[in-house]
């Protein structure tokens, strides 16, 4: 059954998925209702920021995790009311399940109370992080 059909089908699906994937990575998705669990220093390892805390989940088999960590660590240097926490997803599977983290890197944006306001999957652009942080009061 030599045929071009399987190749065309696979490439069409892959292109459609790839376009969606590229567009959706890094995008800040705001939660409709801010009703998640309250996270604090005992869970995320650092004290909450006075306005926003960014909590990044990473894993070993993840290239963009390194770039995301470097970007967010750099950005919080100039934002005194924003803090950054980095969590290895593999060694925190209970938390991963509780917060429904499905891929890495996933960055949660917590408000001052430690509740998730929204999240970004993949490496966000600097402008996307700024917009997300500025939208949280």
């Amino acid at each position: 059954m030599k045929s071009l059909t399987p190749l065309v089908v696979v490439l069409a699906l892959a292109i459609a998925f790839g376009v969606w994937y590229t567009r959706s990575r890094g995008e800040f998705r705001r939660k409709k209702t801010v009703n998640g669990p309250k996270l604090d220093a005992s869970v995320i390892g650092v004290e909450l920021g006075s306005r926003v805390t960014m909590v990044q989940f990473s894993s070993a088999f993840c290239s963009p995790c390194r770039a995301t960590k470097a970007l967010l660590e750099d950005m919080v240097k100039t934002m005194p009311d924003v803090r950054y926490a980095h969590i290895d997803a593999e060694s925190h599977l209970e938390l991963v399940r509780q917060l429904d983290i499905r891929s890495t890197p996933t960055t949660l944006f917590l408000n001052a109370a430690g509740v998730e306001v929204g999240r970004a999957m993949g490496t966000p652009k600097r402008s996307q992080v700024l917009a997300a942080v500025n939208a949280i009061h």
């Binding site: 399987p6 892959a14 994937y21 088999f61 290239s63 997803a89 599977l93 891929s103 890495t104």
Partner: peptide, 29 residues
């Protein structure tokens, strides 16, 4: 099977798709 492998390889080549990012944590869970 070749279709799935091609799907992932093409996404990696054309879109810098990171397979480990998307499936490793789901597998662990």
């Amino acid at each position: 099977a070749v279709g799935f492998a091609l799907f992932a390889a093409f996404l990696n080549a054309a879109f810098n798709f990171c397979l480990g990012c998307e499936i490793y944590l789901l597998g662990l869970r």
